[in-house]
Amino acid sequence: MLEIRNLHASVEGNEILKGIDLTVQPGEVHAIMGPNGSGKSTLARVLAGQEAYEVTAGQVLYDGKDLLEMDPEDRAREGVFMAFQYPVEIPGVGNTYFLKAALNAVRKHRGLHEMDAIEFLKMVRGKMKLVQMDETLLNRPVNEGFSGGEKKRNEIFHMAVLEPRLCILDETDSGLDIDALRIVADGVNALRAKDRSFLVITHYQRLLNYIVPDFVHVLVDGRFVRSGGKELALELEEKGYSWLEGMTPEQIAAQPVGA
């Protein structure tokens, strides 16, 4: 479903991603871990199409299509969703109104009829239960005055409504207490499906206690230095990123698992 080949990207002339390769099959959950400044969020934003990031080399295929050629809104309509690390406030625009516009833009693109208000609300009620979303958040302006936890939950709620095929969670766990983290993780788990893939970007292992990944990749200084199964996350937790920092990729690769 997603194939990233030798991806290089820069911000304001500074190269952040220095050759990323990654293949994600339908239904898989990939965790991307790494220390601050390693390029995790850059990867997420490049995939979502944020303009400030310039792709200098490489290729990204999404369902065989050139993802990097598409405008951000077309990527979204094709099923790429990013849960923001810092969800943006849009004063005066109701959450429901916003989501209905988004959903209908997506549906239109997919050749489905646009939902009217009644149909939409009925559908939304079901999704709210799925992610334990408080009804009062529905009618408030998008993210305005939301607590940190409410904002993250709202992102998962948007994801539930838009039914994307590739979900990118950009440090969704940052700033959440353990209860909020569990609610968000439960929402994500409820949305796991065999044709839906996840890229879970996180600094900490604790999120992965709740969202159990199929694969873990460690990003250091713009490159994946190590990939493995879910046990790699635990190992990282134990030893810290310093374990992998300062080594060449060859050295890291030479480390036996559990060393």
Binding site: G49, E73, I90, L99, A105, H158
Partner: peptide, 21 residues
């Protein structure tokens, strides 16, 4: 960008943000 990422075109996003304002 937030609106774009949800599938909303830039023009619709501007009009939505202005209407909210």
């Amino acid at each position: 960008f937030y609106c774009n990422q949800r599938g909303i075109s830039t023009e619709d996003a501007v009009s939505m943000i202005v209407n909210g304002f």
